[in-house]
Design a protein around this nucleic acid. Structure first.
Length: 594
DNA sequence: CTAGGGTTAG
């Protein structure tokens, strides 16, 4: 577009000048461009009112520019301070441009203190969105109270803003309260936000149930709704459901856009159908870094290392810039097949690309070194990390030190782990099992004592299985399932077969502090066995029994699943959260851990 | 000027 000269600007009417300002700012993708436009507008020596208009519009543009939030937000603050009588629109724009919940709340309070203008529903909607993005429910609650005080709580946008805030912060019950309060005017956005909230925390049946309710209420889903539904299936490993939902998407002619495709790739990969994931990926018209990353991570999960690395180079050739998540895929692929040198090379590639390693990236490197038996390298790598290692990293190191019988590393790593997380039951399960398998009984009882002293109780093992589109959940020794009477005999038979197969009814040392005779009961009522029993009861071969388990350091569930598989001639896959041991060529089975 | 979506290590 042609820029105006000051002489031209002086002769133009106000409307024309404002049009010029608006279309000029529309062309500003980043902070630099915006500053350029700002300088141009200053040169025009606009009349007072038009200048204020320009500043407001400049401020509004700050929210949508892509530059580092910090730089653009301080620029936005500067602009705001230059506006003599900021309107509500100005405050709203400022709030939109601020990066964190704290500053947003401060700006909101400043507006209240000024007395005028009053916040409107836009103000609250923006502020709530900022709190949701920053995962700051405390600040959000304050805004919730404010919404009441300002009489703005009934606005549709404020309500969905609140709903979404709670949903994003995983406060599902609060989100539901808001949702229930909306009864009459729930629109597609509200339904989607609520479904997304359930999906985020893994309440798949609730997400799916609400999805059905939504349809019954005559609200037609769009691609955004379906992303949440599909990712709920991915989280739960609900393959049949996921396929049904995919078919539904096709049947309804819902656009499978970039985000939905990515969700589908993730779902198929996490549910074990990597070929379908790949087909979705191949069918995409555009692929951004998240799509590539989902695909690469999916391939890595399945141990398809060459493919994962091949996709990575193809991605680089297409000039798509990798991010931390991409390198999680690449590095974990290397770790899964012992490619230490390649892993190290990718590590420096990452640094050369200016990507600051995330905790997960460090974790991948530790895992890579550990799996290759380079315990000393792994240990010095952990010690040399510029950020303080988290508990996952210490546990990775511990498990590997145990397999290599490096009790010296176990010693110091366990110390650090318990300092870091003295209240996490997972750590005690891990450590006491570790010492038990090394016959260090004094250590085992020390762990128990420490647990007791710290008032730590063990997390129950939880598993789920999908039957006919419904997810059945089981907890250790849980008899609340409506069909428990039919499940029990199957369980007993499983226990018999396990014993006949010569499997020692050994179980986690602290998980069940029980006598010998009770041990077998505890063993046969492990959650995954309950789930497998239910699967045997409800399905016939060749239906694959897929069970999802919550605990990673579960001592023998995969081994037992294998025995049951063989004995019943059924395919049984036990998956812990995302990893399929079936595809790992044994490299990741519990046997190696313990 | 408002609200809902996808990828992360053990």
């Amino acid at each position: 577009m042609r820029l105006l000269t000051p002489q031209e600007a002086a002769t133009l009417p106000r409307e024309a000048l404002e049009t010029h300002i608006v279309s000029l700012l529309r062309r500003c993708p980043g902070l630099l461009a915006l500053r350029g436009a700002h300088a141009h507008l200053l040169r025009l020596r606009l009349p007072r009112l038009t200048a204020a208009f320009a500043l407001s519009k400049l401020l509004a543009s700050c929210a949508s520019i892509s530059d580092a939030a910090a730089a653009s937000s301080s620029y936005a603050r500067n602009l705001f301070d230059q506006i003599p009588d900021p309107t509500a629109f100005c405050y709203n724009s400022l709030i939109r441009a601020l990066p964190a919940a704290g500053p947003v709340l401060a700006a909101y309070r400043r507006m209240l203190r000024a007395g005028s203008p009053r916040p409107n529903s836009f103000t609250l909607a923006f502020a709530l969105k900022a709190c949701a993005a920053a995962l700051a429910p405390a600040e959000g609650r304050q805004l919730h109270a404010q919404a009441f005080r300002q009489g703005l709580e009934s606005g549709a946008y404020v309500q969905t803003g609140l709903l979404n805030l709670y949903a994003k912060c995983e406060e599902v019950a609060l989100a539901r309260t808001v949702f229930d309060g909306m009864a009459g005017d729930r629109n597609l956005v509200a339904w989607s936000a609520m479904i997304g909230g359930y999906s985020r925390v893994g309440l798949v049946n609730e997400a799916l149930g609400l999805f059905r309710e939504m349809q019954a209420a005559g609200v037609e889903p769009d691609e955004i709704t379906m992303v949440s539904v599909i990712s709920a299936c991915a989280k739960a490993g609900a393959l049949d459901l996921g396929r049904w939902v995919h078919a539904y998407i096709d049947r309804k002619g819902i656009t499978v856009d970039l985000e939905l495709s990515t969700a589908l790739i993730d779902m198929y990969a996490k549910c074990g159908m990597i070929e379908r994931a790949r087909r979705v990926f191949d069918g995409m018209v555009e692929r951004d870094i998240k799509a590539w990353s989902a695909m690469i991570v999916g391939l890595a999960i399945h141990g398809l290392v060459e493919d994962a690395l091949g996709f990575f180079s193809r991605m680089l050739e297409l000039k798509v810039r990798p991010n931390n998540v991409t390198f999680v895929g690449v590095l974990s692929a290397c770790a899964h097949s012992g490619l230490v040198d390649d892993g190290r090379r990718y590590w420096s590639t990452m640094q050369n690309l200016g990507i600051k390693p995330s905790m997960e990236n460090y974790g991948c490197m530790v895992d890579l070194l550990c799996r290759s038996g380079l315990l000393d390298d792994a240990y010095s790598f952990v010690i040399g990390m510029p950020i303080s290692p988290n508990s996952i990293i210490w546990r990775t190191l511990l498990v590997a030190s145990k397999s290599s019988n490096r009790m010296d590393i176990v010693e110091s790593a366990s110390k650090r782990l318990l300092e870091l997380e003295p209240l996490n039951p997972e750590n005690y399960v891990l450590l006491s099992n570790l010492y038990a398998s090394n016959s260090q009984w004094d250590r085992v009882s020390y762990m128990r004592k420490k647990m007791k002293d710290n008032n730590v109780t063990v997390v129950a093992g939880r598993s789920s299985i999908e039957i006919n589109g419904y997810l059945h959940k089981f907890v250790v020794s849980d008899d609340s399932h409506p069909e428990i009477k039919e499940i029990r005999p199957v369980l007993r038979e499983i226990a018999d077969r396990v014993r006949r197969a010569g499997h020692k009814p050994w179980t986690a040392a602290v998980l069940h502090d029980v006598g010998e005779e009770e041990k077998e009961v505890a063993l046969c009522e492990h959650s995954e066995r309950l789930a497998i029993a239910y699967g045997l009861l409800k399905t016939r071969a060749p239906h694959v029994i897929r069970v999802v388990k919550n605990l990673r350091f579960c001592p023998d569930c995969h081994e037992v699943a294998k025995i049951i598989s063989k004995s019943y001639n059924r395919e049984i896959i036990v998956r812990d959260r995302v990893r399929f041991h079936k595809f790992m060529g044994g490299s990741c089975s519990c046997k190696d851990f313990w």
